[in-house]
């Protein structure tokens, strides 16, 4: 992961410049008398992959739908590719890709026909830098649907259908791609191929990607930066590594010596192991160092937020830490 760049992001929460693809400040959403979002802030730069995590009902879908221009916000400043999504025109729309959760539309269409047809709408929006649409054969190949190109959509399996959803989302070569739980229903091989596709989009085509997932392992593999949304606020913003380190600083070290089992928790795992090996050398067996995982960090942060909210004082320890 690109830790060096991320340090820079942490220092300046709103870096200026044209590379800023997403700029969300103090975004608020209220349904009736219920506040769903209480001031969400984050940014994304070109080519960055962001994972938006959070418990169900935290406001992830609402946030994404506001950014997609499918829902009006109550308050706050939002800029998506330099445009307010509430006033985005078709030219702006052509620069976005949207993959929502499990659709079952166009069942009678052949896979190739559908991609070919939807691609036509983007042709007029091609630029010198970005040829649009993505040629159908290449696209089918990129998502692994070439053998199924002439099948009807309703004949596809769940995983194939999902890959078609992704293909539809990227047929216009979006500069910004929204992925809502993209790999639900994928088998491990399809999941790995999908991860490679995401890396390819981000690295080669400089596509900025905002994805939501409940799979923390996936978030860790894909995302340059992780945002945790809980209780209508972003309670954490950083690389997976940073999050894990910041929240649960201690690593756990296990080893056996003379048939006896030891466990030790420390922030400086490398130093401790060096010391341990110098002192006991060959006697140390089955050495294991376990860093705090993203999952540990996620659970700790969400728990902290929820218990803080219950106590009436939102615990914003993490944000204070990152802004210091």
């Amino acid at each position: 992961m690109t830790a060096v760049e991320l340090a820079g992001v942490a220092e300046t929460p709103h870096p200026p410049g044209k590379d800023l693809v997403l700029d969300v400040r103090d975004l608020r959403m209220r349904y009736g008398s219920t506040d769903v979002l209480h001031g969400v802030d984050f940014t994304a730069r070109r080519g960055e992959v962001l994972a938006l995590l959070g418990p169900n009902g935290a406001g992830k879908t609402t946030t994404i739908e506001i950014l997609e221009g499918f829902r009006m916000r109550s308050a706050g400043e939002v800029s998506v590719l330099g445009v307010d999504p509430g006033r985005g025109d078709e030219r702006w729309r052509a620069r976005l890709g949207v993959v929502l959760q499990s659709w079952r539309d166009h069942g009678k269409w052949k896979v190739r026909d559908l991609l070919d047809h939807l691609g036509i709408f983007y042709r007029a929006y091609a630029t010198e830098r970005i040829p649009r649409p993505w040629p159908v054969d290449e696209l089918l190949d990129a998502v692994g649907l070439t053998p199924h190109a002439d099948k009807r959509v309703h004949q596809l399996s769940g995983g194939q259908r999902r890959r078609l959803d992704v293909a539809v989302g990227i047929v216009g070569r979006p500069e910004l791609l929204f992925l809502d739980e993209p790999t639900v229903g994928f088998d491990p091989a399809a999941r790995r191929e999908f991860h490679e596709l995401v890396h390819r989009l981000a690295d080669l085509d400089e596509t900025t990607i905002l994805l939501t997932t409940h799979d923390l392992d996936e978030a860790e593999k894909l995302a340059d930066r992780i945002l945790i949304l809980a209780g209508g606020r972003i309670i954490a913003d950083g690389s997976p590594d940073e999050l894990a380190r910041r929240v649960a600083g201690d690593a756990e070290i296990r080893w056996t010596r003379g048939g006896e089992r030891f466990v030790h928790a420390t922030a400086d795992a490398t130093g401790f192991v060096r010391e341990l090996l110098t002192q006991h050398g060959d006697e140390v067996q089955e050495l294991e160092v376990r860093r705090a995982s993203l999952e540990d960090a996620y659970m700790a942060l969400v728990y902290e937020q929820e218990s803080g909210a219950r106590a009436g004082a939102a615990a914003r320890v993490w944000q204070q830490g990152s802004e210091a």
Binding site: E68, R91, L100, W103, D105, L118, F121, Y122
Partner: peptide
């Protein structure tokens, strides 16, 4: 029916898709 199955949302996410 096509509103319920997602066709219209797909079309909405496409530039000038509603017209088409």
């Amino acid at each position: 029916v096509e509103r319920e199955d997602g066709t219209l949302l797909r079309v909405k996410a496409t530039p000038n898709g509603m017209l088409g």
